[in-house]
């Protein structure tokens, strides 16, 4: 992680999941795994975020909110989908109220599979997104 100039801030969005991935994301922030040693912080508004962490299969009521949160996040941004449900609906295929994996509505950069993925895997996914973000910024210059 040599070329990293600024710590990235993440915003977490739950589109109707079971909370398994959400508590593993929070566990990644606590002292055992300590995402914060990289300067990664959980922010309260998508307008301050660089990376969106999205969990859950998208339910009908949350589809609109997902698109809105994506639009509110300023460029350049990365989208990291955590868990099987967001990547491919997981166990919830062919449910009437689940409208589809996250990449049906917003472009996704990193998928972290698992049900739920371990905190180490989530940190790895966020690090990959970080590196991709830095490369994007370099190319734009």
């Amino acid at each position: 992680m040599q070329a990293l100039k600024r710590a990235i801030w993440v915003f977490h969005l739950n589109t109707g999941g079971c909370n398994g991935c959400d508590i593993e994301i929070l566990a990644a922030l606590t002292p055992r795994y300590d995402l914060e040693r990289f300067g990664i912080k959980l922010v309260g508004s998508p307008r301050h975020a660089d990376v969106l962490l999205i969990t859950g299969p998208v339910t009908r009521k949350m589809e609109e909110r997902l698109k809105r949160v994506y639009a509110q996040t300023p460029d350049p941004k990365m989208v990291v989908v955590v868990g099987n449900c967001g990547s491919s609906k997981g166990v919830f295929h062919h449910h009437y109220n689940v409208v589809g994996p996250v990449d049906k509505f917003v472009p996704v950069d990193v998928y972290v599979p698992g049900c739920p993925p371990r905190p180490e895997a989530i940190i790895y996914g966020v690090a990959k997104a970080w590196i991709k973000l830095e490369k994007l910024k370099e190319e734009k210059k």
Binding site: R60, K61, H94, H95, Y96, N97
Partner: peptide, 21 residues
């Protein structure tokens, strides 16, 4: 369910819900 949802998912044979699935 959303206020404008059509169909009753509890009923086993409900064509409107089957289409959504």
């Amino acid at each position: 369910l959303p206020q404008d949802f059509k169909g009753h998912p509890g009923i086993k044979k409900d064509k409107r819900v089957d289409m959504l699935e």
